[in-house]
Design a protein around this nucleic acid. Sequence first.
DNA 1: CAGTAAACGAGACGGTACGTCTTGTCTTCGG
DNA 2: CCGAAGACAAGACGTACCGTCTCGTTTACTG
Lengths: 202, 202, 202, 202
Amino acid sequence: MAERGRRGRPRSAEADAAIVAAATELLLRHGYGGLSMEEVAERAAVAKTTLYRRWPTKDHLAVAVVARLQEDDEITDTGDIRKDLTDYMEKVAGGLNRMRAAGRRPGEDSTSAGTVAELVAASGRHDDIAELRGRLYARRNALARELIERARRRGDLRADLDSEVLLDQLAGALYYRVLITGTPVDRAYAERLVAAALDGAL
Amino acid sequence: MAERGRRGRPRSAEADAAIVAAATELLLRHGYGGLSMEEVAERAAVAKTTLYRRWPTKDHLAVAVVARLQEDDEITDTGDIRKDLTDYMEKVAGGLNRMRAAGRRPGEDSTSAGTVAELVAASGRHDDIAELRGRLYARRNALARELIERARRRGDLRADLDSEVLLDQLAGALYYRVLITGTPVDRAYAERLVAAALDGAL
Amino acid sequence: MAERGRRGRPRSAEADAAIVAAATELLLRHGYGGLSMEEVAERAAVAKTTLYRRWPTKDHLAVAVVARLQEDDEITDTGDIRKDLTDYMEKVAGGLNRMRAAGRRPGEDSTSAGTVAELVAASGRHDDIAELRGRLYARRNALARELIERARRRGDLRADLDSEVLLDQLAGALYYRVLITGTPVDRAYAERLVAAALDGAL
Amino acid sequence: MAERGRRGRPRSAEADAAIVAAATELLLRHGYGGLSMEEVAERAAVAKTTLYRRWPTKDHLAVAVVARLQEDDEITDTGDIRKDLTDYMEKVAGGLNRMRAAGRRPGEDSTSAGTVAELVAASGRHDDIAELRGRLYARRNALARELIERARRRGDLRADLDSEVLLDQLAGALYYRVLITGTPVDRAYAERLVAAALDGAL
DNA sequence: CAGTAAACGAGACGGTACGTCTTGTCTTCGG
DNA sequence: CCGAAGACAAGACGTACCGTCTCGTTTACTG
């Protein structure tokens, strides 16, 4: 089965890299509002057409940049479910906190993470972005649920556990604090969170 | 220092009402992007000056509109903490679901709530909005925490309960589903959620 | 009948002047291709919106500029029809020659008048410009025809003269040389032209 | 010195034909602005490279297309100078009128001939086109002048006739009407024109 | 018949201007 | 002083085309 030779000039990998680099820089430094296609093109020494050939919209570019930034929060399974969940929560929190700093003058305590919200908002403006985000979180959550399932099968968690809700509670608490209440999220919080979820309130 | 009676023509209450009405209509119908100051002014038969005299920014107007829409999620205390929390969760979910529909053509299943995210994003753009939102959620959460505290004092919840985390878990799960994963949130889910939080995973 | 006071802020006369000045400069210096809305706006220290509020298109602006430049080729009637026609031809030729220089580096012998052609082309792209140009030339020719008619009534021209054709021959020859063949047009040529037209070829 | 046989693959005659056909179609149907290299390439099922290998510029292609369209306005010499000139004028007018229709929706009375002007404008943008056009009109006019000279030698025209001006008057009038005033040009007009030029105005 | 030179299809690329849009301010007149 | 009307500055957006380039492929002539 002969490899069907590609037609036409191939896309430039340099351009790709330069664009993403410039966009990342702008996004982290000046936030979503400070990310302009015009300036990305200029900084990447690339024509605007080259941007739009790859990403049909500023929103798409921004989402791609952030997706790359948060690419891999790997999940490790040590057999200690309490520790594994706490580690995972810390990784997720880390990703969020990195975005939290975006567009803030250093020292300024960013009470919320406008940039994260802007990206969620982008989902609302483009169905394809929404879909992409959906698949992304589905995959991510699937991995975490496997971790939980293994622990349950080992007998470390209740047999009738609602793993979907458990994940919502855990990840949700982080996003809620970062996006909505603007309260801090760190290792200590991750521990309290996992403890509360595992032990219950009764 | 004598009371310095207001000079000049007083602000028109009709204008206020017309503006908020028009803005609400646009926001719910066409989403945040479809809310333009120009069009609000036209529909309210009001000059743009009049808008900006009252709200310094489109973001401020939008936030004000939404704040009005979600004004009152009252908390009731029947003594049955499981039921009370479930009711409260359902109210919060209701508010979110109402925003979820914004800007969607009827029938279209809105996987996420772009408009909610836009408003969170607005917080990231204006410190005063962030502050306002902070105070709003602080008050709201304070009420919910009182409910929990009363239950604990009655002995219905663990003595060493981390009530801050409990609320994060509950509200967070809702926001997470609405904003991030785009999964549905209804009475049934509220029940599962409260059950999981109260009973724990172990 | 009371003058109905204009509503809203009136258009800025300074902006008008600055725009036309900048556009004229660019058009004459760099030709039609060198006239860019972007640069006109910058040079006039004016927003692009201000340009487009006045002229819906680059073509419209360019035409307006040129119309202003050629505004008044007055016709004088001394009673000597040969002299009057020659003078008029010279004036028309002057206007054309001024456009001929547009966009040419000094010293460069412009064989044709691209800019004039660009403006005629603009008529082909916008019906309203075509109409405007039609009215302009109608008025211009009407004045010239009056001159001719007076001469005929005096008995200085044939009684059965076709004055429409006479004008076409005269003005046409000038435009033909400037636009098509690229041959020069000056006072001497104007004299030959009028002589030939009045005396006939037989 | 032996004929140094061409190296490499010869140019495709099919491509040539397809390109010119597509370009002609587009130019006549949608005018100069509607003639885009991109679309010519697509319609001719040819790569853009193939276009630019033959014509360095869109302007060059357009000019070539039109040159082909107006290739031959042959001049016939019957000995009756009035008739011969009228016939020639009619042929020239025919060519212009064909261009006049370009880019017009059928039925729409094209007051002017934007496409002709666009081509003249193209001369202003490329010296080689200007030169080409110069040579073209020189040859054309030379033939017409020979016709006139023969008539003069026969004694059918004044001995001191200015044949250059005579031609400017005749052709100029046609172009002037088509390009500038937008008035119609037909056989009847050609007759009036030749009559006026031959008989004079005095 | 193998080698090579050029044409060719496909499509990415840099560049540039266009015309549109929206925000928030400013200026005028009138109540 | 408020309001209505609308002009204004600023600046990004996404589109369109041009003419150039870089691939891989095809078609001739040539040694």
